[in-house]
Computed example of a mutant assay.
Amino acid sequence: MSSSPSAVTVIGLGPMGRALAGAFVAAGVRTTVWNRTPGRDRELIEQGAVGADSAAEAVAASPLTVVCVVDYDAADAVLRQGAVTAGLKGRTLVNLTADTPERARDTGRWAAEHGIAYLDGAIMTPTPTIGTPDAVFIHSGPEELYRAQRPVLDALGGTHTHLGEDIGRAAAYDIALLDIFWTSMTGYAHALAVAGAEGIKPTELAPFAQGIGAILPPLFGQLADDVESGAFSGEGSRLSSTVATMAHIVHASEGHGIDASVMRAAEGLARRTMALGYGAEGFTRVTEFLGRR
Rank of each mutant, 00 (worst) to 15 (best):
A61T: 11
T97C: 06
G82C: 12
E288L: 15
V8K: 05
D120R: 02
I167T: 15
G51K: 01
S62Y: 01
M16Y: 03
D134E: 14
V70Y: 07
H251Q: 10
Q210A: 05
G277Y: 10
S253P: 13
T287L: 07
P5W: 00
S140R: 02
D53K: 14
S237L: 09
P15R: 07
A214T: 00
G234C: 10
D41C: 09
A172H: 02
P5M: 01
D99P: 03
V67H: 02
T161W: 14
G48Y: 03
R103H: 09
V84N: 01
A58M: 11
S140G: 06
L156A: 04
F232K: 02
G82S: 14
A27P: 08
L156T: 06
I215M: 15
V50C: 06
A252K: 11
V70G: 04
T127G: 08
R105P: 09
M246C: 01
D41P: 08
V8N: 09
A27T: 12
F283L: 14
T132S: 13
I167D: 09
A104E: 13
D120N: 06
F24N: 04
V8D: 05
D225N: 01
E144I: 09
A7N: 09
D259R: 12
P128K: 11
G158E: 05
E288M: 15
T287D: 03
N35E: 00
K89A: 14
R238F: 14
A60R: 11
I249T: 11
A19H: 09
R264K: 14
T161G: 10
P217Y: 15
I215F: 15
T186K: 01
T159H: 01
G277W: 10
T65D: 00
T129I: 11
A135I: 10
A61K: 05
I249C: 06
G234H: 10
G234F: 07
G17V: 13
A111Q: 01
